[in-house]
Write a protein that binds this DNA or RNA. Structure first.
Lengths: 116, 116
DNA sequence: ACCTATTTGTCCGTATGTATG
DNA sequence: CCATACATACGGACAAATAGG
């Protein structure tokens, strides 16, 4: 699993890490049931603190993409790839909308229109 | 401008054409202010009916991406690239959500959560 | 079945920058 | 301008799960 993050990017490190892991899951670099690298190990490779990686993992756990158990590691949930894919898309959409100065109401309206 | 459509794809041809044009605008193959190919010409190249192309163009006009004027052709609006980019993202998000069996409420909730 | 060492996430706090009043 | 609050990132100690002897 090859992850790229950019410390000068503006967005928080843990957000970038979560997004990078989502991408890796979507692309199939790690399959459902597979273990993610331990937080300490990934932190070492990315040159960030373990807790920063852990926070990214926690985000993925809260959204249902992975499961975390101490001593056992973090594994991709069943259906995690689909979930990660969807989360990635909504993230890109909202980010681009924000960049263009649209607010919540505008984005919801766009979506409603797209669904009709 | 190079467009690819697939008659066996399931989604309507005019939707595919609109998406392909959006992509071309986003990638910069046609810039803001540039003219799109006349509907007749594009229809010939894609081997579809002229009205199918026109329906795609109308969709782009309704969403504010292009402007259509009789006799003058269809030109990409100022800000059309941004708009097309956003529309493409929301389209992908909604399509993937649908594919996973989520309904309107689920998608809005996902979006709200992403924005908080 | 027992003990121990290792692995790995969890919980405590701290520092720093950034927005808010 | 100052104080306060909040978010981000870091550090150390802790506890559950696992593996080996």
């Amino acid at each position: 699993m090859l992850l790229c993050i950019d410390p000068t990017d503006g967005s928080p490190l843990y957000t970038q890490i979560a997004a990078a892991v989502r991408r890796a899951i979507v692309e199939g670099e790690v399959g459902e049931g597979d273990r993610l690298p331990p937080a300490r190990e990934l932190a070492l490779a990315l040159e960030v603190n373990m807790h920063t990686v852990l926070r990214a993992y926690a985000e993925l756990r809260d959204e249902g993409t992975i499961e975390m158990r101490r001593g056992r590691g973090s594994v991709v949930q069943r259906g995690g790839a689909s979930r990660a894919g969807l989360l990635r898309l909504v993230g890109e959409f909202v980010a681009e909308g924000r960049r263009q100065g649209l607010d919540r109401k505008d984005l919801i309206e766009l979506m409603e229109q797209e669904m009709s």
